[in-house]
Simulated assay, not measured.
Amino acid sequence: MRLAGSESSQRNAKRLRKAMTPPEIALWLALRSNEAGLRFRRQYAAGRYVLDFYCAPARLAVEIDGEAHNRGDRPQRDGVRDAWLAGQGTQVLRYAAGDVLTNLDGVVRDIMTTALARMGRPVG
């Protein structure tokens, strides 16, 4: 089952690919050259949402949360989004932007372990 995006989310994804944050850029560079050969997409349109990163074979979304994700109604909105994705069979991993910058290797290792496990491939 393909996770397709709406027309507006596809336009938004294209715009966001041109305006990636430093943590997103660092993670993108690490994910696109992973040793397991998994393909990740950046700023991927899914329904009415745009996922920071998406690995289709593992049905895994990766979100980098900046400070704004802790304010206002954002936690509730993120919860609704994560529940919708779960209903589509997609797991969401969330990482604080600061963690990506200070522990990139650990974040990538966690993402790859989760992706490979979801695909039933041996980890290690």
Rank of each mutant, 00 (worst) to 15 (best):
D82I: 04
K14S: 10
V123G: 04
P75D: 05
E67S: 09
Q43G: 08
A19R: 15
G79F: 00
G120K: 07
G124H: 13
R81Q: 11
A56D: 04
L85Q: 04
A83M: 13
S33I: 10
L85E: 03
R17H: 12
L3M: 11
R48Y: 03
R17E: 09
Y49V: 01
M20W: 09
T90L: 15
L116Y: 09
N34C: 09
A26D: 05
R77W: 11
A115L: 04
G87Q: 14
T90G: 02
E24W: 03
A56I: 02
K18M: 11
V92G: 05
G98R: 12
R15F: 13
N103F: 06
R81D: 05
V100H: 00
A97K: 00
R11N: 12
G106H: 11
K14V: 10
L104R: 09
A68E: 13
L27F: 02
P22I: 05
G37A: 10
R32C: 10
A36R: 15
G47H: 05
A19V: 03
L116D: 01
A30N: 11
M112Y: 02
V92M: 05
P23M: 03
E24G: 11
A45M: 12
H69D: 05
Q43V: 13
A36F: 14
E63N: 03
A61R: 00
C55Q: 01
W84A: 13
G98P: 07
F40H: 03
P122S: 12
Q10M: 12
A45Q: 06
G37H: 09
R118S: 03
L116R: 14
S8V: 07
R48D: 15
R118G: 06
G5E: 07
Y44C: 01
P57Q: 02
L85N: 06
P75W: 00
R39K: 14
L101N: 03
F53D: 10
L51I: 12
I111L: 06
A68L: 15
G72V: 06
P22Y: 00
A19Y: 08
D99C: 06
A61S: 13
G66C: 07
L38P: 06
M112T: 06
R17S: 13
L51W: 01
A117N: 08
Y95C: 08
N34R: 07
G5R: 04
A115F: 11
D110E: 15
A58E: 06
A68P: 00
S9V: 08
D52Q: 10
P57W: 00
R39E: 11
V92W: 06
M119N: 07
G79L: 14
L93N: 02
A30Y: 07
S8D: 12
P23K: 00
